[in-house]
Structures are given as structure tokens and as C-alpha cells.
Amino acid sequence: MRSQVLFVTFNLAPKLGGLEQVIQRARAALRERADVVTLAQGARRYVERDPDVLRPRIEGLGAYMAFLYTRCMLGIRNHNFDLVVSGSALTALPTLHLAKRFGARSACIIYGLDTIYESSLYQRVYRHAMPRMNRVIAISTATRREAVARGIAPERLIIIPPGCDAELFQAPRDTENLRRHWGLEGCKVILSAGRLVRRKGLDRFIRECLPEVVLRVPTVKLLVAGGNPEGALAHTDDVLASVEGAIRETGLDNHVVVTGRLTSEEMVAAFQLAEVFILPVIPVEGDMEGFGIVLLEAGAAGVPVVATAIGGITDAVVDGETGVLVPPLDYSAMASALIELLRDERRRLALGERGRRRALAEFNWTDISSRYAEALLNA
């Protein structure tokens, strides 16, 4: 008999981000093995074609939490769930209550910010609810460490990293048209991709590192693919404005291209035309880089990474093998690493090839999502 699973998540497509990718893939793998009903955030713009996804009529966290404790029961009261899964620690407490209501096991996936979020009330709820979960899956060693520090028994915790669509990056794209469109002809490209949030440190990178790289490699350009996050609960700063301010202050207008959000095909092409990928994450109180799926995508595209050795990045990048890790805020070391890779094509290609092989062998979503499903069903 197939298991009956209730999946509780505030974060579900069409929202985009690393967390949403993990939830989407884990949920899809569960649906291959079990009957799954999902309680997701509500919004009028969502056109729900899946009868097994239930949403409140009103968007927002408050309306969603109220829905979990009231109206959702109308849609699920006739089910007999074996397992209730929380898509993140944000919904851990109602997940526990629902699990108790159905006499079911409970499980949760945690990422980073959802564990260390700075709110005394949130932390009290976390420390009450999370240790009571039957199974907790952390996406990185750093996230697991933070969870243990907050009272989750190590034996209840396992680490399963995110994956990436590695195969998507293997077929060559037409990069020349985009090179012309973005003014990158004859340039060596450093790529930054993803949602712009403060911990990514891109504005500080432009101010404190990029000028030295431009001085030593005059043909270099930084390609910034991404924008401010939409609908985020925690990341509300206008980081794009900070990045644009840093470009003006340094006078590097001719060495930085900000594209805004790209289509998936444009993003693949952006990776393929880059020489190096940069992720200059900085320490930010109450926030952390749980892993960094973009680092796997860079590897899949055969692009070496220069990043800071902080949070889950140390799980995503093998220093000296698939990229170069430097201490946080050490912009001298970061500049040296970038300059060396931009000048040394042989080493750059070797690191990129090892990253590509690792992404294909260890982080393909088919295998990773199966691991999530099996771990959850065996909670």
C-alpha cells in the first residue's frame, strides 16, 4: 500500500530559489512513491491545476498559518496520513500539530536562514518544534551544525545536499549573440548569478576586489545576472541599488554589466560564456549561505569557482579541485585567485572539467531527489 503524505510548505513554484528547487524536487520524488497532498501558500495569481495542492484564498504568511490551523482541515479531514513533511523550519510547528492530529510521523528539510533567523519568538518556536521531528534533513554540514546547536539530536539529522540540472548545461548554446548584446566581445567574463541579497557581498566585491582585478586584467568584465528577490520574507533590502551604487563609486561602468533576471536558456548561455564564477559571500548576522546551487551549476557548465569559505559553500566547492576558496572578506586573496585563473587557461580549464564531472556524478537531481524521498518516507 502506498504511503499517504501531507506536504506543508510556504514555498512552492512559481516562487524561485534554491529552497524552492529542493522542495519541488523532493515533493516530485515523493509523488512517485506515495500519495501526496500539499498545503501551499495562497495567491490569486496561482492557477492551480493540481487537485492535490490546497491553498488559502489570501496571500501572505499570516493567512497561510491561519489556513493551516483552520480551513485546510476541510480538504484533508478524510485522509489517513502516515507522514507530514515540513518544507522548511518555517512551518515546523503546524507540521507537528498536523502530525499529532493524524497520528503520523513528522519530518522537515532545513536550509540555513530558516534555522538561524534572528527573532527571539522564532527561535523559541524552533527550539520547541524541531527537536520533536522524527527526521530532519539538512542541506549542508554548516546547516546541520547550526541545527545541533539549537537542540536537534544528531541521530535525527542527516545531510542531503541539493542537486542541479547538470545535463542542462552540457549542450552548447549560442553565446555569441549574447556576447554582442551585453558588450562582452573580446572580454574575459567573471559571472555572478542568483538573487541579490546582502550576504552575497556583491557590492563589497565591486568596491574592494574588482578594481584590482581590472587593473591586472584590463579586458575583464563582471556579468551580474539576477535581481532583488521577489516576495521574500527576510531579504527586503534593495541590494541591486547598492550594487549599482558601487559601480558608480568605483567608476567601473565599462567593466560591469547588470542583466537583470534571465530566462533559463539565457542563464545557461551566461554560464557557458564565463571564464570564472564568483560567489563572494560575507558574514551577515542572522543569515547564512546554506549551500549555493549556483556553484553546482557553474561546475556543470565547466566553469571554475572563486568563493568564500563560509557556510555550506565548503560542501559545494572542493578547494583546489573544482575552484578556489578564500577566507571571508579577504579581497586580496580573492583578487589573486581571480587574476591567476583569468591568466592561466590550463588551470582554469582543469578546475572547470573536474567541477563538471563532480556535478554530473554526485549532484544530478534524479539521484538526489530519490535520496530525499527515501529519507522522508523512512522518517
Rank of each mutant, 00 (worst) to 15 (best):
L12R: 10
G18E: 03
G18K: 12
V22Q: 03
R31T: 08
D35T: 13
A40K: 15
Y46E: 06
V47Y: 13
I58D: 14
Y64A: 00
F81Y: 15
A107Q: 10
A107K: 10
D114G: 00
S119C: 01
S120D: 09
Q123K: 11
V148I: 14
G151S: 11
P154W: 11
P162K: 14
G163F: 07
C164L: 15
D165Q: 14
D165Y: 13
F169G: 12
Q170D: 09
R173D: 09
E176L: 06
L178C: 00
L178V: 05
R180I: 12
G186V: 12
I190K: 14
R195D: 00
R198A: 00
K200V: 00
I206C: 02
E208H: 12
N228L: 01
E230R: 13
E230Y: 13
L233T: 04
L233Q: 08
V239K: 14
G251K: 12
L252M: 07
V256C: 06
R261T: 01
R261C: 02
T263F: 02
E265N: 14
A269H: 14
A270T: 02
F271W: 11
E275P: 07
V276K: 02
V284G: 02
M288C: 00
F291M: 05
L295I: 05
T314W: 13
V318F: 10
G320N: 09
G323K: 10
L325A: 05
Y331D: 04
S332F: 10
M334F: 08
L338R: 12
L342K: 13
R348Y: 06
E353L: 07
E353F: 10
R357W: 09
E374W: 14
A375Y: 00
